[in-house]
Every structure is written in C-alpha cells, then in structure tokens.
C-alpha cells in the first residue's frame, strides 16, 4: 500500500523539479526541514550518550572495572563503586516485574474477555489514567499512604514469623520495619508499569482474529483454556516485548523510587531493608556533587543507559512485528 503513494510522491518530486517559481523552493525547504527534524532525533540520542560517557569517563579511568564490583560510596575518601546502586536497580525492577506482570495480564484478559460491554470503556480509561499520574505523585502515595500500611500489616508480621528461619529469615526480615525499602520500591514500580504492560498486552490480544477464540469456545473450551492455549500462545512474543518495555521503564524510574527506596548505601540481603537505585542516587546527590563524585554519578548514568538501551532494543524488536505491520 505505501509503495504506490511513495512512487507517486517521488514522481511528483521529479515533475516539480522541471517547474519554476516559488513553490519549488518552498517544496525543497519543506523537505529539508522535515529531514532535519528527523535527523535531530538521531543527534539528540547520540548527544545523550556522548555527554554521559564524557562525564563518566574520569570515574571509569580511575576505578576501572573495580567500579562495577565495589560497594563503596564514600565522599570523604573519594572511593566510589556501583555495586549497591546496580543491584538495587536490578532487584527492584525484577520485583516490579514479578508483581506487575501477572496483574497486567489479568487486567488485559479481564478487559478483552470478561468485562461486560458497558463497563469496558470506563474501566479501560481508569487503567490508562494510572499511566498519566506523574511519578512524583506515586512517590508521595508510596511514602505517605502505602509505606505505613505496608510496615504495619506486612513487614512486622512477616518479620516476626520468619525470624530465625534459614534463608527466608534473612531475605524477608526487616531490622527496622519502616515500610521503605527495596521491596516497597518494587511494589510501587509494579503499579507504575501495570498500565503500560496491560495496554500493550490488550492491544496484542485484540489483534488475534476473533474466529480463533470463537472456534476454541465452540469446541467447549473454558475461558482459562482459551487464554492458555489460544491467547497466550498467539501473543506470547509480543507480550514478552511488552514486559521488556515495562522493565525498561522500571529500571529508569526516578522520583517514585527516590521517595520509597530508603536511599541507603548498604548491600543488604533483605528486600525489606532500604537500598538505593542508580536513578535515585543521581537524583539525591547530583546537585551537591563535585569533582570525582560528579564523575562517579555520571558513570552510574552511563551504566543505566547501557542497561535500559539493551532492554528497550530487545523490547522493540519483540513488539515491532505486530506494531508496524
């Protein structure tokens, strides 16, 4: 389909070249503007990468590979390492996926399969509005509403139960049950990625031909079997893409995490304990940073860029097939 239009537009370009008058210049100018604007996107992305590398280079040169494996973050002695922030970022993002993905898929299935027709639009709208709420508001909600409830009804009872047990007794034990910590960050991130993953998953499920579902129901499948054997199987690649997109968002989310992660530079085995992520550390320290600390923060930004870039590229490759086609 685009090919025909393409040919005609191109043919027209040749034809105008033969004509004189102001419209030819306007035409060239217009095209050049469009071309320039498109190139700008390329330049900005390259600019972001080079600015961060430029800023982080001194830190990488001074600490070498040790930057990745050191858990030090000492402004006094100028010793910096990325380990705590990187693990915090990865763990909170993975927790967000573990919690958020089942909920997202549940919502997508509810909206496409189970929701009564009259409620479909308002419910879908509500879920989409969750995506519009600014991340700082999620931060405030997490810190002032969710964290106290979480500490009281989850952290303290769970800590009391698991205390002394092997492994679980470490992972799920809160030394100071304040409600803020890596798990809280993961839960808030989960809520934030749910509308994105759910809306993409819903689109993917909607694209499966209705006749497939009708046939499955026709041979007597239950809803669970239709979901399991028809929907998930057909949309699996693009749903994984949607999940990766959610992961990309979770990794780079800043303000909400800064409110609830606790901002401690400590490598703790418990997911109830405070930690920090790359983004939260940059947000917290950048304005007061100077010299090597600034470089180290830029180097953290560099690591974040690389991680999210890989995840987002993977996500786009997986979802592209369906989206563009």
């Amino acid at each position: 389909m685009p090919a025909l239009t393409e040919t005609i537009v191109l043919a027209r370009t040749r034809a105008t070249a033969a004509r004189k008058g102001p419209s030819k210049n306007l035409d060239t100018l217009f095209r050049a503007c469009a071309y320039g604007a498109a190139l700008l996107v390329l330049i900005v992305l390259a600019g972001i990468l080079s600015a961060i590398i430029y800023g982080g280079l001194p830190a990488f040169q001074q600490f070498g590979l040790g930057f990745l494996t050191s858990s030090a973050w000492n402004v006094g002695t100028e010793q910096y390492g990325a380990l705590v922030a990187v693990t915090g970022t990865l763990i909170s993002a993975l927790l967000a996926l573990a919690i958020g993905v089942p909920i997202s898929l549940g919502i997508a299935i509810y909206l496409t399969q189970l929701c009564p027709n009259w409620a479909r639009k308002p419910v879908a709208m509500t879920i989409e509005l969750l995506a519009a709420v600014p991340s700082i508001i999620y931060g405030m909600w997490g810190l002032f509403i969710f964290a106290p409830l979480f500490a009281r009804f989850i952290e303290i009872p769970v800590s009391n139960i698991v205390e002394g047990l092997p492994i679980i007794g470490t992972v799920l034990y809160a030394r100071i049950p304040s409600g803020v910590g890596v798990l809280t960050a993961g839960i808030i991130l989960a809520i934030m990625i749910v509308p994105f993953v759910a809306s993409i998953a819903r689109d993917m499920i909607d694209q499966i031909p209705t006749i497939m579902r009708e046939s499955a129901y026709g041979v007597g499948c239950t809803t669970w079997e239709v979901v399991r054997f028809v929907l998930i199987r057909h949309a699996s690649v693009s749903i994984i893409g949607a999940i990766m997109l959610g992961l990309g968002r979770a990794l780079g989310e800043t303000m909400a995490v800064t409110f609830v992660v606790g901002n401690a530079n400590r490598l703790s085995a418990s997911i109830f304990d405070p930690g920090s992520t790359i983004a939260s550390r940059i947000a917290n320290e950048f304005n007061e940073a100077d010299g090597m600390q600034l470089n180290a923060l830029m180097a953290l930004g560099c690591i974040l860029f690389v991680i999210t870039f890989i995840v987002l590229v993977a996500a786009r490759i997986l979802t592209r097939r369906v989206r563009v086609g």
């Binding site: 600015a51 997109l245 990309g248 780079g252 983004a279 974040l304 987002l312």
Partner: peptide, 18 residues
Amino acid sequence: DILLSAPSILIGLFIYTL
C-alpha cells in the same frame, strides 16, 4: 521509540552537561 522510553533523569544529565 528508544528515546520515548529512555529514563528521563538521563536527559537531565545530558542537558546539565550541554
């Protein structure tokens, strides 16, 4: 599409440097 989902804090770092 990458820029669409890039962490916004990195854009802050970029403009700070620029």
